[in-house]
Amino acid sequence: MEQVIKTEKLTKRFGDFIACNELSFEVGKGEIFGFLGANGAGKTTAMRMLCGLLKPTSGKASVAGYDVFTQTEKIKMSIGYMSQKFSLYDDLTVSENIRFYAGIYGMRTKEIKIKTQELLDELQLQNEAKTLVSALPLGWKQKLAFSVSIVHAPDIVFLDEPTGGVDPVTRRQFWDLIYHAADRGVTVFVTTHYMDEAEYCNRVSIMVDGVIAALDSPANLKKQYGSENMEEVFYQLARKAKRSDN
């Protein structure tokens, strides 16, 4: 399988504090990769390095074939990013948001028009094109934010707790979108606090105290830790954490 994320002993120190300690892993094209960890384990630091937003202290890593030390601008053009906290502009309409993001990623006007229509059809938001995003229900916003984050057909999309706060049906519809994107070859790198969602990933890594404590398919992890579900696996690993943010 083609590897779109490769890290080798990727490390980030802040003074004496080692936020990420020698992370080594690979993520394949089209894979749904769950990136879990307790609060304070180092997830956000790792994600920021992979997105080209934070320079690592040592080690090696490439994302979409580009080096995280020297080619961060190329990385930013090849990835999508969505988080629950930051996603869309509330005071722009649905189609303005699409146009804005597509424009930022350098898409041509003609291309943007076609893509906008496609996106509205796929999300069944045709009648809401001129609606301000602030007026949309949270579930619609999240689906739109996800679609916008992959509007420029990136190789990889990073999703930082994308499904917080929505009802259980909407949460599952969101995962349908993730599966469709992965099916089209987009690699999905996702963090979540919902442990049932960890089971929907092809592989899952669990960070504890700055290191990757476990990395495998959910089925293998459950077998290895003799657990019924991913929540128990996570609990076994994360409760040993010395450095937590509690």
Partner: peptide, 9 residues
């Protein structure tokens, strides 16, 4: 909300 499984428990 937004708290990991261990802290929630």
């Amino acid at each position: 909300t937004g708290v990991d499984v261990v802290s929630r428990k």
